[in-house]
Design a protein around this nucleic acid. Structure first.
Lengths: 227, 227
DNA sequence: ATTTAATTTTAGACAAACCTAAATAATTGT
DNA sequence: ACAATTATTTAGGTTTGTCTAAAATTAAAT
């Protein structure tokens, strides 16, 4: 038996992905309203769809009790996320897109149905482990190493890690990073944090620089060593 | 004003493409039944859709008189075909798909909406002029050099050309070509044709070989020089 | 030139995915 | 504990793209 079904509509896939992301951290059940907000639809539409997904055993659902993904649903979600992130790597590594442009296009590409395509794309990209934002790419069976990606503002002094992503992906912010010689893949160490303004001094290849709290809350590090 | 509209549904795009292909050679108007057969739907569904496309000025349509693409519709068709063929090149050149596998996947990829994506893909592939089947790739403005691709069986003795495609793309046929050292991109010259069985002698890099009429009716050459 | 056959269109229905408005259940505040 | 608020569901309607069956038009055949 195949792990996930191919006969899913675009809309069904989007709902599954949405539910996955909403329950990614607080692994409780997800509220109808929360899904409606994320999907930019109305709660009544969500109820309709959730019933449908429940009949397909993709979610666990009891009236008024919220929704959670079944194991089957979780695997579907992970296969979509795998595709999304592989396409993002492709767009950045091969087509020279910048971080902030890839999401919208990947949202479309993630729905392409072809196992062979994804296998070959994966090989072509050299079996990447993370996407351009530093998020882990699940393997074929939905297995992935949980990211220990954290915002600089949330890390203690002494932490060291590889810059793997941004929170704010506006053109302005990316331009700022460029000007300050901060790039994806660089290794940083957090040297000092000022209590009064939350600014942080970090060491980079180009020496040490001080970044504002606002910047610190928008840069993700993948932790290598935490003192 | 943009040359083609982005707010088209998947189904609308498929109909436009279908009408384009049906009127590609006999440039008359296309019959409702013909579209229905190609699209694997019923004639009544075609009538509905054709009315809709007519209101959007994508086709010329008068009751009981058949359909033809408007200039606008033709440009939409060519932009879809451009995408389809670029993706086919990508699948073969970069992901190592074989000729016969790419069509189905490209049918999905051709609907991805992003100008930037197609521009960058085009550049990444080195601005190819033809797809893996030897069919020409229209440029951004829908301009393309009409292919002078012909079956070996239809060419006179003395013709010379580059092998650009196959008619029958079965695994068995592709295997046969492989065994006889015939590959896409090879230059052939037609040396002789036997009247009694239609078999043809062609010169290849590896010397001259005789191919049966059946093979000759399944191999396309892009003509370089015709005596 | 009619009749027959084939093609095309209309009319009415259906499923998917959405909507609004009203009803019901759960939660919160006092 | 119970009224008020918020969250969720139901009921009924819309649009898109499909269908079947019947009616209308065109083409073919004798």
């Amino acid at each position: 038996m195949h792990l996930y079904c191919f006969n899913m509509t675009l809309s069904e896939e989007d709902y599954i992905k949405s539910i996955y992301h909403l329950s990614e951290f607080n692994s409780k059940s997800v509220a109808t309203n929360a899904i409606a907000e994320q999907m930019k639809t109305k709660p009544s539409s969500v109820t309709d769809m959730v019933k449908k997904l429940s009949e397909k055993s993709l979610v666990n659902y009891k009236k008024y009790q919220g929704v959670s993904l079944s194991e089957k649903g979780r695997l579907v979600a992970l296969s979509i996320i795998r595709k999304h992130r592989l396409w993002e790597v492709f767009l950045v590594d091969k087509l020279n897109f910048s971080w902030d442009e890839v999401h919208v296009v990947a949202e479309q590409l993630e729905h392409i149905k072809s196992d062979a395509l994804i296998d070959k794309l994966d090989a072509h990209l050299g079996y990447p482990k993370v996407d351009p934002h530093g998020d882990p790419i699940p393997n074929k069976d939905g297995v992935f190493t949980k990211s220990i990606k954290k915002l600089i503002s949330e890390l203690p002094v002494g932490s060291q890690g590889v810059c793997v992503g941004v929170n704010d992906s506006s053109a302005a912010f990316l331009k700022f990073l460029d000007k300050n010689k901060i790039a994806l893949g660089d290794t940083f160490k957090i040297l000092e944090r000022e209590d009064f303004d939350g600014s942080v001094t970090i060491s980079t290849r180009a020496g040490s620089i001080n970044i504002s709290k606002q910047i610190a809350t928008n840069l993700f590090l993948e932790i290598v060593d935490e003192e």
